[in-house]
Simulated scan of single mutants.
Amino acid sequence: MLIRREQAEDIVAIGQLTTRAFRDAEHSSQTEAAIIDALREAGAMTLSLVAVDEGELIGHIAFSPVKVNGRDVGWYGLGPVSVEPERQGEGIGGSLVTAGIENLKALGAEGCVLLGEPAFYARFGFRRSPLLLLENVPPEYFLILAFGPDIPAGVVTYHDAFEAS
């Protein structure tokens, strides 16, 4: 398996993969593919990585800037992350998360937030923090990973592309 940055020829396959990956997810609004497209169109996708196996795109992860109390503080949001349904459980998602975190650090990011399953993301160092809040979501699913000693405090907002439908 190869993990690399998204290329123009991957865009259609990413949308299709994302739709398949979230089709049966109970927590999904079925807008994940639209969110990725909207982030890309707005120039707000900081990092987009794909996992490719034998020429087939089998995974994707996106990172975009978030704001804390309306300010850019060098933090990013992870998501959506998609893995081909029949390939889930093979470590592809974990490999994408690890590569994404390494890439964000190389870009000088201060930290990363996500809305996701605590049991899965804890192995990468993500945890809850009382300092950061994402409104209207269960706090136990909003997780952070600081890349340095400082964690900003306040309300996190994602890019408007997350309202895409």
Results as ranks from 00 to 15, higher is better:
Q7K: 15
Q7T: 13
E9W: 05
E9D: 15
D10V: 00
D10A: 02
V12H: 15
I14H: 05
G15H: 02
T19Y: 01
A21T: 15
F22C: 09
D24K: 06
E26C: 11
T31A: 14
A33F: 08
A34N: 00
I36W: 02
D37R: 15
L39K: 07
A42T: 02
G43K: 07
M45K: 13
M45Y: 10
L47F: 04
S48E: 01
L49F: 07
V50T: 00
V50Y: 04
V52M: 09
V52L: 06
D53M: 09
L57W: 02
H60K: 03
I61E: 08
P65D: 00
K67H: 13
K67G: 11
V68F: 07
G70Q: 03
G70Y: 00
D72F: 04
W75G: 02
W75C: 02
Y76G: 04
Y76C: 08
G77W: 00
S82K: 02
V83L: 06
E84H: 04
P85V: 08
E86H: 09
R87S: 12
E90D: 14
G91D: 13
G93A: 01
G94I: 06
S95P: 08
S95F: 02
V97W: 03
E102Q: 14
A106N: 10
L107P: 08
G108K: 05
G108W: 02
E110I: 06
E110N: 11
V113A: 01
L114F: 05
L115S: 11
G116W: 01
F120V: 06
Y121G: 01
Y121R: 05
F124D: 02
F124E: 00
R127Q: 06
R128E: 13
S129H: 00
S129F: 00
P130S: 14
L131G: 08
L134Q: 14
L134E: 10
E135M: 14
P138Y: 00
P139Y: 09
F142S: 13
L143Q: 10
L143S: 13
I144V: 15
L145Q: 05
A146P: 14
A146T: 12
F147M: 02
P149T: 01
I151Y: 04
V156T: 12
T157V: 13
A161R: 03
A161P: 02
A161K: 03
E163I: 10
E163V: 04
E163A: 10
